[in-house]
Computed example of a mutant assay.
Amino acid sequence: MYKELESNFFLLVKSNKEKAFQLVFDAYWETLYKQALKKIHSNDLAQDLVQEVFICLWDKIDLLDAEKSVLAYLYAILRNKVLKVYEKDEVSLRYAINVTAKESTAHIHSQNILLEKELKRIIDLEIERIPPRMKEIYILKKEDDLSIKEIADNLSLSEQTIKNQLQSAYTRLRMRVKDYDSSLALLAIFIAKHL
């Protein structure tokens, strides 16, 4: 199916660029969106990234190599855009750490507040990215302060499933902050217990 679609695409590009673009857009938008959502875990951001991918396709449509797969090209653009999202998060965190590291010891309290806010932002972003069911369980535990048994009863799931989902959520959150300095890691532990 894709092979025929792609060969039609390259034939159409020469005669009707708009129609060729629409053909690929209609065929691949949902596939790319699902891939972006799997990586980003944010509907709005996933949609934005896919739109950017198609803007890149439009800009380069005349330069595409007919020997290559259009879908592979679109996946490559999407992968790069996803990586840039993660790089941007890391850069802003590293900037916050560097700025606070230069402050005098008289401002340690202020530094801790800034680090705590930055870490909370990172954790909140990661919570937004976790799968919906895992997020629901995590929120019921952390924000509504329900017991594992209460969550299991409310969602008609086994207690073991709830434990597994919570463990996965905690692991994801720990992985998100583990690359940063030890003061953030310690704050992460403190905040995770008190969220």
Rank of each mutant, 00 (worst) to 15 (best):
residue 17 K to E: 13
residue 2 Y to Q: 10
residue 193 K to F: 10
residue 88 K to Y: 12
residue 182 S to P: 02
residue 47 Q to F: 12
residue 18 E to W: 03
residue 38 K to M: 10
residue 132 P to Q: 08
residue 191 I to T: 06
residue 9 F to Q: 07
residue 95 Y to W: 02
residue 185 A to W: 09
residue 67 E to C: 00
residue 124 D to L: 08
residue 177 V to L: 07
residue 106 A to W: 04
residue 95 Y to K: 13
residue 4 E to P: 00
residue 28 Y to K: 01
residue 59 D to L: 10
residue 16 N to K: 15
residue 105 T to G: 00
residue 149 K to G: 07
residue 55 I to R: 00
residue 69 S to F: 08
residue 28 Y to T: 00
residue 57 L to E: 03
residue 34 K to L: 14
residue 171 T to W: 09
residue 117 K to D: 13
residue 9 F to C: 07
residue 49 L to Q: 00
residue 45 L to M: 10
residue 8 N to V: 01
residue 131 P to H: 04
residue 15 S to N: 12
residue 40 I to S: 00
residue 45 L to K: 12
residue 145 D to A: 14
residue 54 F to Y: 14
residue 17 K to G: 05
residue 145 D to L: 14
residue 35 Q to W: 03
residue 162 I to W: 04
residue 173 L to K: 03
residue 163 K to T: 01
residue 79 R to K: 15
residue 148 I to H: 00
residue 30 E to M: 12
residue 67 E to P: 01
residue 89 D to N: 09
residue 89 D to I: 02
residue 184 L to D: 00
residue 17 K to T: 14
residue 15 S to T: 14
residue 16 N to T: 14
residue 26 D to W: 07
residue 89 D to L: 12
residue 170 Y to I: 04
residue 61 I to P: 01
residue 165 Q to R: 13
residue 168 S to W: 09
residue 119 L to K: 03
residue 153 D to M: 03
residue 64 L to F: 03
residue 129 R to H: 05
residue 124 D to T: 01
residue 4 E to H: 04
residue 13 V to C: 06
residue 51 Q to Y: 15
residue 101 A to R: 13
residue 172 R to I: 15
residue 30 E to F: 08
residue 40 I to T: 06
residue 191 I to S: 05
residue 160 Q to P: 02
residue 68 K to C: 02
residue 116 E to Y: 05
